[in-house]
Amino acid sequence: MANPSWGMVIDNDKCTGCNACVIACQSENNIPINEEDHFTQRRPIQWIRIERYWEGEFPNVKARFIPVLCQHCADAPCEPVCPVYATYHNDQGLNVQVYNRCIGTRFCANGCPYQVRHFNFWEPEWPDSLENQLNPDVTVRTRGIMEKCTFCVQRIQRTKRESEKNNTSIKDGDRQLNPACVNGCATDALVFGDFNNPESKVSKMKKKELGHGGHGDHSDHDGHKEHDEKRGYHLLEEYGTHPSVVYLKKVDYESKTVEKH
């Protein structure tokens, strides 16, 4: 069987901005607690964050949310700039960060247009009450190295190991396999799966919403009806990074507009 190409489909229409994915990620991946001064210095570590936009004038204000995580770009701008090959693309479509190789030049974070790479400016610290909640399957990153979303590669590896042991294939949408953010999402706005498997939920969604063109190239040549039906797009697709995360537009019938952030 072909290697999987892990990816995600994020439906902005379903996202309520509840931040459950952020908390799930925080606890799954041993991310240190972001304190207030980390935010004021613009140095918080959030592998997934909810970007919030306000729309409209005062009485009719609407909040719009976009969950932003590492897009695991096929042509990632972070990869060629690393002098020590600490970040590279593996055969499963993952953009891998190798912590023990990283020397902390931060070139990758400067190259990333999505601002999803985070540098450890401080030694990670947890309150005593949380010392025992650390996930033993995830490395605790020390000060001075870069970290980012891994699509919970520890869960992928574990599922792969289990399926090899039991001679079964990896099930699509398996909760053992899904990243913590996907499992934590209350409205199923995040869907994780294998884009190389045409039967997977993400492949079907991508085909339906993005069309054959891929990479969000669904211009209006078929008329407006086509435009209304297909909601898929990539974040900042004009940069040509070819991300593995597909976003679906928020459709607001009330304001008769299709929001594309």
């Binding site: 590279y88 593996n90 993952l94 399957d137 891994t150």
Partner: peptide
């Protein structure tokens, strides 16, 4: 021998 085999 992929890095993610052991390092994650």
């Amino acid at each position: 021998t992929d890095c993610t085999t052991c390092h994650y």
